[in-house]
Design a protein around this nucleic acid. Structure first.
Length: 105
DNA sequence: TACTTGACAGCAT
DNA sequence: AATGCTGCCAAGT
């Protein structure tokens, strides 16, 4: 039978949980490390499915441009940025962070 | 069932 | 650097 969505989520969450403090990972990279290359969009779904009280550092996941993918209308967007800045991540004037510097691996 | 949307990414222009 | 198009695929309508 096909792998359940719950199992897929848990595999992706496990990868996100390994991102070190002060570092970030792209959606595509999380998918690759979880053994699901090309499943970047599933990572977004998995993070949406996270319970509000989860301890998983979902805010360490950004897109391949080094930008936050949450819509401007989302309150979580500012939370994500402040959490990253709190860990030392610096955003430039274009609201982007340097993946060469903060990317993991 | 058909069509649209989106917390993506890669390539072309 | 910025835009646009394509592949992707689960979820919503």
């Amino acid at each position: 039978m096909a792998t359940s969505r719950q199992t897929i989520n848990e595999q992706l969450w496990q990868v996100v949980a390994m991102i070190p403090r002060g570092r970030v990972c792209t959606y595509g990279e999380v998918a690759r490390q979880a053994g699901m290359p090309g499943a970047a969009r599933r990572v977004g779904k998995a993070l949406q499915d996270l319970p509000n009280d989860s301890r998983i550092p979902w805010y360490r996941v950004v897109n391949s441009q080094g930008r936050i993918s949450l819509p401007e209308s989302s309150p979580s967007r500012s939370y994500q940025r402040s959490q990253l800045e709190m860990e030392g991540v610096v955003f430039n004037a274009a609201n982007r962070l340097d993946l060469k510097q903060y990317g993991w691996p």
